Simulated scan of single mutants.
Amino acid sequence: MKVLQWLTICVLLVPLSLRAAGPSLPLESANNDLQDLDSLKRGAELFADKCLACHSIKYMRYNRIAADLGWSNEEVVEVMSYGQDRAVDDVMTRMPEGVAMNVFGTKMPDLSLMARLKGTDYIYSFLRGYEYDPETESWDNRLLKGTVMPHVLESMERHSTEESYAQAARDISNFLEYAGEPAKLQRWDLGWKVMLFLLLLIIVTYLLKKEYWRDIKH
């Protein structure tokens, strides 16, 4: 009876999220770097070329991307929308309303917060997780069996080097992490300045304390 009670307590102490989770596949590490602006720019271009036909990042505007990544408004519109949108527009899919449901049988998700929801390792592993089945002559993804999303980096996997293929997946993951929380770039830039200010404040405070107590005998 005591053993049963002990096991019950142990089960209840396990977080519900862990008990509910099923077996998971190992993820590859994206090793992306939000401070790598060249990677973010490549990721933005790849996202526009490979993903924007179906997916939006509706919480981002072109001019915000331009300001953060070092483009002009004209450049970001040309690079990401091929001159079809304005800099003040949200980054929306070019797929007309209702087409996704008719063609794929489902709505295409907005990817604004995908990196925050799934993590960049998941996005990187998903982009690299496509496997070709010779019997069905089709692609499937080991992380999401039966996915209707095509292998958008198929041409790179077939015709580029492994390094280029991996870098493309990493750049897209990097860009989607940025899109999920663009203020993180400013926070990181501000963080070291705050730490430097606090360090200088500690030094000044210590010197001031010594000056106040210099003539006081203990």
Rank of each mutant, 00 (worst) to 15 (best):
86 R>S: 13
87 A>H: 12
88 V>P: 00
89 D>E: 08
90 D>L: 13
91 V>G: 00
91 V>D: 00
91 V>E: 00
93 T>F: 01
94 R>S: 14
94 R>E: 06
95 M>C: 09
95 M>L: 15
96 P>M: 07
97 E>H: 09
97 E>R: 13
98 G>Q: 04
98 G>A: 06
98 G>T: 07
98 G>S: 06
100 A>Y: 01
100 A>G: 15
101 M>D: 10
102 N>T: 11
102 N>Q: 12
103 V>T: 12
103 V>Y: 08
103 V>Q: 11
104 F>P: 00
104 F>V: 05
104 F>Q: 02
104 F>I: 02
105 G>C: 07
106 T>K: 13
106 T>V: 12
106 T>E: 15
107 K>H: 09
107 K>A: 15
107 K>M: 13
108 M>E: 03
108 M>A: 12
108 M>G: 00
109 P>V: 03
110 D>C: 04
110 D>I: 02
110 D>G: 03
110 D>F: 03
110 D>H: 02
110 D>R: 02
110 D>Y: 03
112 S>C: 05
113 L>H: 06
113 L>R: 10
114 M>R: 09
114 M>S: 13
114 M>G: 01
114 M>E: 11
115 A>I: 07
115 A>F: 05
116 R>A: 14
117 L>K: 13
117 L>M: 14
117 L>V: 12
118 K>I: 00
119 G>D: 06
120 T>S: 15
120 T>N: 11
121 D>M: 07
121 D>K: 06
122 Y>R: 03
122 Y>S: 06
122 Y>K: 02
124 Y>P: 01
124 Y>I: 11
